[in-house]
Design a protein around this nucleic acid. Structure first.
Lengths: 336, 336
DNA sequence: TTTATTTACTTAACCGTTTTCGTAAAACTA
DNA sequence: TAGTTTTACGAAAACGGTTAAGTAAATAAA
C-alpha cells in the first residue's frame, strides 16, 4: 500500500529513523532546522504513519468500540452520533459491533477485546444477557468499560442511564390522570435492568394510585414482530382489555398502532398510548404520539466523554461516575 | 493488558515461537501432538492474539471502514445493520466515521485510510462533495472503495444505488395520476448524483405528462431544520402553491407534515405527499405516508458483499460490479 | 583553560506476529 | 547400505514505528 515509511524519509534525508520519528512528534531534542526538513519531506512524499506499528509499540490503539444490540431504533442511531462526534474530537477511532441481541455474540466480541484491539468500550447489553463475567474479565484486564442505556447494575463501572424508574412511574401516572383504569405495560425482556426499572416504576405508580394489578398489567413481547403483533392483538381482544398502554420500547409502537387500527379501537378515545421513543415522527403520527424521550445524543456524548476521561487520566475511577439523565414526557394526541 | 503472547506459550512449552505461531494456524508442518499441546496451553492461559502485530506483519487489517454523513435517518441505520452483518460473517471489523456532511472531514478521513488502517471502504458521500481526488488517491493506493447510495458516477469502481431516476419519475407519475397539477420536489443538494437523478426523473415525468415547469417545481432545502421549515411554509403560502409534494429525503417529511398542519392544509385533500423514506412509522402517520422505499439493508449487504469479494479475489474488478437495486412505491393515505 | 552541561543526533532494543530458510532426524527408495 | 525425501521443528528477519541510552560536538560554567 503506502510504501513511504519513516525509513524512506530517513534515507532520503540522511538521518536516522529515530530522528524522523521524533521530529514528526515535535520532540524537544531535535533541532528546528531538521524538524523543518523532516516535515517538508513527509509532506512531499505524502507520508502517512502506519497506525498499527505505533499501536503495537505503545500498546494503545486510539480506538474504542461501541457494542450494541442493533441500530434499529432511533435511540441507538442518535447515540452513535453522539459517540462518534466525541471520538472524532478526541482523535479516536470507533469500531462498531452489533450483537443482534445474542449473548453468545456479545461474549465473543468482548473476548476479542482482550487482545488490545481497543482502549475502551461502550456497551449496551443484549436482552439475553444475565451474567457478566465476560465484561468483568475485560475490565480486569484493564480495558475500561462504560455502560449506556442497557446497563448491568452490579458492575462497578460507569453507567449512563435515564431515570427509568421515574419514567415508568410517570408514564402510568399520566395515563391514570387521563382517566385510564386498566393499564398494560409492554416490555421485551425481564433481565434488562432498564426494562425492570421502567416496570417497577410503572407498578409502583399503579400501587400509589390505587390501581389494580392483573395478569395483563405487564405483557411480555419479544424481538419478533409477528409474535408481538399476535400478542398485542390478543391483549386488545381480551375482555378486560387495557384502556392505557405503555410501549416501553420504540419498536413496539408501530405494532400497537396497527393492532389498534385492525381492532377498530380508536386512540385515544378507547385506548391511550404512550411510548418510550425518540421517533422524529412522533408529532405527525395518527394520532400524534405522547412520548417519553431519552436524550440519546447526550447520553452517547456523556458515555464517551466519561470513557475518554478514564483513558486520559490514569487514576480516574469510572465506578464513581455513573450518571442518570432525565428523560422527558411530551404529551401529545395519543393520551388526550 | 494481555501479557500472554506467543512467546509466553513458547517458553511454557519449550518450543520456538515459530512453532507456536504455526500450530495456532494449523499449519501442515507441525506435528499433531505438538499442535494439541499448543492449543491446550493457549486455551489454558487464555491466549488472545494481538491483532495489530498481525496486521503489521501481514499488511492486512481485517477491518473495513464505513463512511457516511450521519446516522440520522432510517436508511443509514438499516444499511449499517446490513454491512455489519456481512462483516461479522466474514470475520471483518468495521470502523465507522461520520462526516456530518463536511467535505473537509471526508477528505481527512480518507487520507487517514492511506495508512493501511483499513483494507477497504464503503462510502456514502457528503452533500458538499464535488471533487473526488481524495477517493481516487485512496483507490490508487490499492484500497478498494465501494460507493453506496450517494455515489460518484465518474469513479471507476462499484456503486450500489437505487433506481433513482425511475423512482423520481414514478413519484411524479403517481402524483399526476392522483390528480395533482402543481408539483414540487424538495431536495437538499444539487451536487449529489442521487438527488440529481431523482430530480431528473421527476422533471422528465412532468414533461412526459405535459405538466408545466415553474420556479417552484424544484425547491432547495438544506440540512438546517429551521430553514427548511421556513422555506416549506413559504412554498405552501405562495399563490401557485403545490398540490403535490415529493420529499426526496426522509428528514424533510416531518417538516412537510408539520408545515401543512400549521397552514391548515389537509393531506391528501389539498396537498398530496410522497416521501423517499424507510420510516417504520410510515403506515401510522397522520395520514399514513405514501413512500418510495429503498432496500437499505440489502444495499448495505450488497455493498459490503462486493467489497469482500474484492478483498478476497485478487483480480476482482470492482468497476464492473455496480448494482442498481429497485426501490418500491408503497401507496398509502397521503396520496389517496 | 579545564570541566560540566546542553544540544542534536544515532544506535539498538522492543512491541507480537508471520514467514522464509535451514536442518537434524526419521522414513523411504534403490 | 547409501542416498533421497519427508517430517517436524527452530533461527532469524521482517512489518513500521517508539524510546531508552549513548555520544560527539558545541556551549556554558568554574
Amino acid at each position: 500500500m503506502n510504501n513511504v515509511t519513516i525509513k524512506t524519509l530517513a534515507k532520503e534525508l540522511k538521518v536516522s529513523v529515530a530522528t524522523v520519528s521524533k521530529a514528526l512528534k515535535d520532540s524537544y531534542d531535535i533541532g528546528p532546522a531538521t524538524k523543518q526538513r523532516v516535515l517538508e519531506m513527509a509532506d512531499r512524499l505524502n507520508y502517512v504513519p502506519n497506525p498499527y506499528a505505533g499501536s503495537l509499540r505503545k500498546r494503545k490503539s486510539k480506538t474504542i468500540a461501541i457494542v450494541l444490540p442493533e441500530v434499529a431504533d432511533s435511540f441507538f442511531s442518535l447515540a452513535i452520533n453522539g459517540i462518534e462526534a466525541m471520538a472524532q474530537e478526541k482523535g479516536y477511532h470507533v469500531l462498531i459491533y452489533l450483537t443482534h441481541e445474542s449473548f453468545a455474540k456479545e461474549k465473543a466480541i468482548l473476548k476479542d477485546f482482550q487482545s488490545g484491539r481497543v482502549d475502551g468500550v461502550l456497551i449496551s447489553l443484549t436482552s439475553e444477557t444475565t451474567s457478566y463475567e465476560h465484561v468483568e474479565e475485560l475490565s480486569e484486564r484493564g480495558v475500561p468499560v462504560v455502560f449506556f442505556d442497557r446497563v448491568c447494575e452490579e458492575m462497578p463501572t460507569a453507567k449512563i442511564t435515564t431515570d427509568d424508574f421515574d419514567a415508568g412511574y410517570l408514564a402510568a401516572k399520566h395515563l391514570i390522570e387521563k382517566g385510564c383504569r386498566r393499564l398494560s405495560s409492554l416490555s421485551i425482556s425481564n433481565s434488562l435492568s432498564i426494562s425492570n426499572n421502567r416496570m417497577e416504576g410503572f407498578l409502583q405508580s399503579l400501587k400509589d394510585h390505587g390501581q389494580e394489578i392483573t395478569p395483563s398489567t405487564i405483557v411480555m413481547c419479544s424481538n419478533d414482530l409477528e409474535k408481538n403483533h399476535t400478542v398485542i392483538k390478543k391483549l386488545l381482544a381480551s375482555k378486560g382489555r387495557p384502556d392505557g398502554i405503555v410501549a416501553t420500547v420504540e419498536k413496539l409502537i408501530t405494532t400497537v398502532y396497527l393492532a389498534c387500527a385492525e381492532m377498530q379501537l380508536s386512540i385515544p378515545q378507547q385506548v391511550k398510548v404512550i411510548g418510550f421513543s425518540n421517533l422524529p415522527t412522533a408529532p405527525i403520527l395518527n394520532p400524534s404520539l405522547t412520548t417519553i424521550t431519552q436524550p440519546a445524543f447526550e447520553m452517547g456524548k456523556a458515555a464517551s466523554s466519561l470513557l475518554f476521561k478514564a483513558l486520559s487520566k490514569p487514576g480516574f475511577l469510572l465506578q464513581k461516575e455513573s450518571m442518570v439523565i432525565k428523560s422527558v414526557l411530551s404529551v401529545r394526541g395519543s393520551t388526550q
